[in-house]
Each structure stands twice: as C-alpha cells, then as structure tokens.
Design a protein around this nucleic acid. Sequence first.
DNA 1: CATAATTACTTGGACATCCTACTAAATTGT
DNA 2: ACAATTTAGTAGGATGTCCAAGTAATTATG
Lengths: 173, 173
Amino acid sequence: MTKRVDVEPAGSDGVDLIAVAQQNWNRRGWDATTAMAAATSITRSHQIVLARINQTLAPFGLTFSRYEALVLISFTKNGALPMGKIGERLQVHPTSVTNTVDRLEADGLVTKERHPTDGRTTLATITDAGRAIADAATTEMAGIRFGMGDLDDDACDEITDTLGVLRSSAGDF
Amino acid sequence: MTKRVDVEPAGSDGVDLIAVAQQNWNRRGWDATTAMAAATSITRSHQIVLARINQTLAPFGLTFSRYEALVLISFTKNGALPMGKIGERLQVHPTSVTNTVDRLEADGLVTKERHPTDGRTTLATITDAGRAIADAATTEMAGIRFGMGDLDDDACDEITDTLGVLRSSAGDF
DNA sequence: CATAATTACTTGGACATCCTACTAAATTGT
DNA sequence: ACAATTTAGTAGGATGTCCAAGTAATTATG
C-alpha cells in the first residue's frame, strides 16, 4: 500500500539526487552539467506538482488537464470555447484537447456544440454540473496552493520569474 | 507539416499566457493565483525542455527516459544496475523502469541479466552498442544544453536553486 | 525448519501527450 | 462559380507515467 515513488515529504534522506548526478557527470568530464541539473530539476518539480494536484482532483473525478480545460471554459462569457482556442490557451496539441474534452463530456461536465456560423468549429460548452465541479475543485486547489506546498508567494514568484527566462527564450512571450 | 504546438522560438507574440491567466483568476477573486502561476510555469517549462530533448534524441532512437536510464547504467562500475536502483535514482515508478528497460533491450542497448546471488533482482546491463549510443547522444545533449536553450549557467543555476526549495519541501533532500 | 512477511519485478489498465494522416468546412484565387 | 488552399477537429498509433494486483524469491520469525 506504500507509494512506490516518493512525491510527498516523507523522509528527507539528506541526499539531493540531482546534485549527486551532476557531480558524477562533472567527474567524467562532461559539459553542460549545470544545464542538465536545471532540466532534471524541472522534470522532477513537474512530477511533484502534478502528483499533488491530481491527488487533490481525483475526488472530483478530474485530472489537471481536465481541470485546466474546464476552468478555462468557465471563465468565458458564454461558458463555451472552440476546441482550437482551448489548445492555444493551454498550449497543448489539438488531439490532446479532443481527448480531454471528450472525457469531460463523458462525465457530463461539458457538451460539444456545433458553432453557429462556422461548421468546422466545435464549441466545448460547460454544463451546470461542470461549473459546480470547477468551483468546488478550485477551492481545494487553492487550499493546496496548486501543488506548490508550503512555498510562500515570494518563493512562487521567484519560480515563475526564473522559469520565465526559459519560456521567453522559447518564444512564449 | 507545421507543428501544432509551439515549443521553439517562433513568433514571440508578446503575450504571456500564464500572466494573462493569473490576471483572469485575480479578477474573479480567486486565491493562491501566485502559486497557480508557478505551477503552470513548471508545467510549461517541462513541456518545452522535454520537447527539445526528445527531438534531439530521436535520431538515436532514444527518448529522455531511455536516455536517462542508459546513461545511469553506463556510469556504474560494471555497466549494470538492478531495475529497482534505476527507479530510485531516477525517481520513477518501478513499472516505468520495466517499460523503459524493455525498450532499451529491444533496441539492443541493454540486456536483462539475472542477479548472481539474488534471484529476485534483474540487472539491466549495458551493451557496447548502448555505450556508443549513450556517448554520441550525450554529446548532442550537451550541445543543446539539455533543452535549456540559450540560458547560461547562471540562469540554469537560478532555476535549479529556486526549484530546489520545492523539491526540498517535498522531501527530496 | 516451516510459515509469515518483505522485496523485486512484471502484467494489465487508465491517462495524457505528441505525431501522422484524414475528413469536412470555409476561404482564396483565377 | 469552381478549383486550390487553409483551417478545425478527429482517428489511430507510439510513448511515458502511475496504480492495483499478482508472481517469485529472499528474509524474518516462532
């Protein structure tokens, strides 16, 4: 019944696996080990945050992807958004949007409507049940600070700012 | 033929989707929006780095997961490591290790050997082909700075340090 | 020493992501 | 108007990750 991969504050073994790995790489004379440590840190951080979030959303029958899409739709004026727009805003592949919305639809949280003037477009429309779930889930999400744990706002801002350099260099803004 | 999701420096549209999202949340009076922005930044950064890395590794028939495992094994004294150890070091689920090693084995980069004294343990052993691929791939990986793009060492260190707070709070060290 | 508990790994299943390729609908261009 | 191009979504396939459950082998215990 024990988790096979630690994602929560269990027993700080005092060993930073990423730091150790970097030392191993340096010892072998490899280059760019600093970049490697950063990339690995991002990967691990993503794993930690995603696990916490999904654990929190599970009781609502949601996952982070579905939650993000659902909230995005709920924020629109008419509670509806074209599939393509969802992909743009969340920066995920169109096929991922289809997958996500289909699952939300299967759970009755959204419906897929045909766009009134553009037959190509499908509008993902939130249902009352969808709004209710989104609101309840958001309260919980805020409670766990969206997976950031006990990091305060300053620490979070620092992460956002620092990663902003990477995102910016990748053309995000 | 065009990518459906931008991951590379294409056309900085000048709009930071994460910042905009945070504003939308604030406008609606939700809490912990700073934490939300950080969590989303981590998710997006992971997507960017992983895409770059996998693109670079594709010519070698590798993915980041397989590459990480392969290099880890190549770093050992005997070029062999128990499945469980791989999972511990890379902090992934045992079943992920099985999946990864099986694929490496299918490509002839590692072999699965029975441990000489403990029948339960399987030793993932690197082959000569595996070492060759690992070295060649690492050269390319260093070339792209492990997906960190044009971020210099200082920027990378800042990311590693900042995310270290999160990893530490999650019990990583 | 035999049984219970633990450990190592695998199998099967659920999800999410991306890519390639295809269909349908709208827009362009001649 | 009609053909070519572009745009919006979807289907199918490959990968990776995790969880639950099951098998095999080792260790602990009475």
